[in-house]
Simulated assay, not measured.
Amino acid sequence: MTLPKSVSEATDTGKSIRDHTDEIRKFKLSAKNTRIIMLARLSFSFILTLLAAGICYRYQSVLGTGTTLLLFLMSVTFAAWFGSFRIGLANICLSVILLLLVIPLTSVWDIAALSELILYLLLGMWINLILHIAKKVDLAAQFDEKEKYYRNQIEVLKKDNIYFRQEIKVRDEFLSIASHELKTPLTSTLLKLQTALHNVRNVSLAKFSVQNLMGMLESAELQTKRLSKMINDLLNVSLIRTRRLELEPEKSDLIAIARDVIGRFAEKLEKEAVTVTLKGDESVMLDVDKLRIEQVFTNLISNAIKYGEGKPVEITVKKKGSLALFRITDHGSGIPEGIRKRIFELFERGSNNSGHKGLGIGLYISDQIVRAHRGRIVVESRVGDGSTFTTELPIYEK
């Protein structure tokens, strides 16, 4: 016997032994209870037979031989159906003995009476056999039904097993990517702040450069904002995965939301010399969670700037039937077909270029938010010709 390697393993082993012992005990109790039930049914069927014999003995002259045999057949039927084939046979044998006692001997040797007794015996055997076959068919049907149920349960468990394995894999990837991506801005921010403190403490006023200090602080601020965005994205992923993402819809104008989001990128657009044009209807009103839709637009516009290779970005917001459309087009390198099929999955990116930093969860969050609004995001892309992301949101008229 191999000794357990740890306390937890020993605990698990002990628990397994206890569970196994409990199962054996339950099985023994179940078998014992079954025997008790069968014995009780046998006793009850015999009591019925004796009761029938008493009635026949007391009122034989009134009932007649046919009614007497019918009363005994009722007890045989009960024994065969609620007991077993053997209990039915035992009841038939007891009934024949009692019939010999109940029916006068002069009648027993009468050919007619003897024929009725033999007929009773054959009929009892036939009823017992028919009920035995019927019970077997019923048990077979129950067995097939249980087998089907347990097969379905096995399939459900297999699917759950695959799902949980995938969840564990996603968790491991999440921890790996998150630890790496969060460490980078933290390290950079810490380095900038340490350098700034060193300059303030040790550099003389003659050589001190306010411009350099401002550059370090701005860089630290940028990394802090990036870190804050990553943390918020991770919190959003947690809300989505635990199905606790709640919406607070309000009447909103998608055109106004798009203008606000583009305005937040003004400094970045100017720095990277990227032109963004917005066109469409004057107003597109619908009930949405404004903050969540802003988050979707922010992710899509950020990706268009990131992967657009400095080329112009076109945004269109308009109504189309019962849908509100937000379409954003960049003219970057495009998305390969293999990546395009899984682009909205967790930790997937729109490019294999390792130079683009990020957790790879922006599109996943955006897609889940739009799905929560009963909409969808459609992507069209060709390698070398850019990509178009179209967000479709339903308009509910009150």
Rank of each mutant, 00 (worst) to 15 (best):
L186C: 13
V317C: 11
N352Q: 12
L70D: 01
P104I: 11
S333V: 04
R244C: 14
P336Q: 04
Q194F: 00
P249G: 02
L122T: 09
G310K: 05
G124W: 01
T224L: 15
W81S: 04
F164W: 07
G384Y: 05
T77M: 15
S43A: 14
T13L: 12
A134P: 00
A90V: 07
G384H: 05
N236D: 13
K311C: 00
H180V: 04
Q166S: 15
P4R: 05
A10I: 00
R376K: 13
K279Y: 01
I17E: 10
T49W: 02
R244D: 12
L235T: 07
R35T: 10
G64R: 08
T21C: 09
L29N: 12
K148I: 13
V76F: 05
V261T: 12
G88S: 09
V288A: 03
S61T: 12
I328W: 01
I377L: 14
F208K: 06
S16K: 09
R371I: 01
D110E: 13
A53H: 00
Q295A: 10
E9V: 04
L69C: 10
L346W: 01
S30Y: 09
V210W: 05
I328P: 03
E246W: 05
Y364T: 07
S351W: 05
L191Y: 02
I369M: 03
L213A: 12
L190T: 11
I262C: 06
Y59H: 15
I130L: 13
G83Q: 07
N161H: 12
M285K: 05
L245N: 03
S219W: 10
N232S: 15
D172H: 07
G124V: 03
F143W: 14
S61M: 09
C93R: 08
E181L: 05
Q142C: 07
R25I: 11
L286N: 03
E155G: 01
L29Y: 04
V288T: 00
T34F: 13
E173S: 10
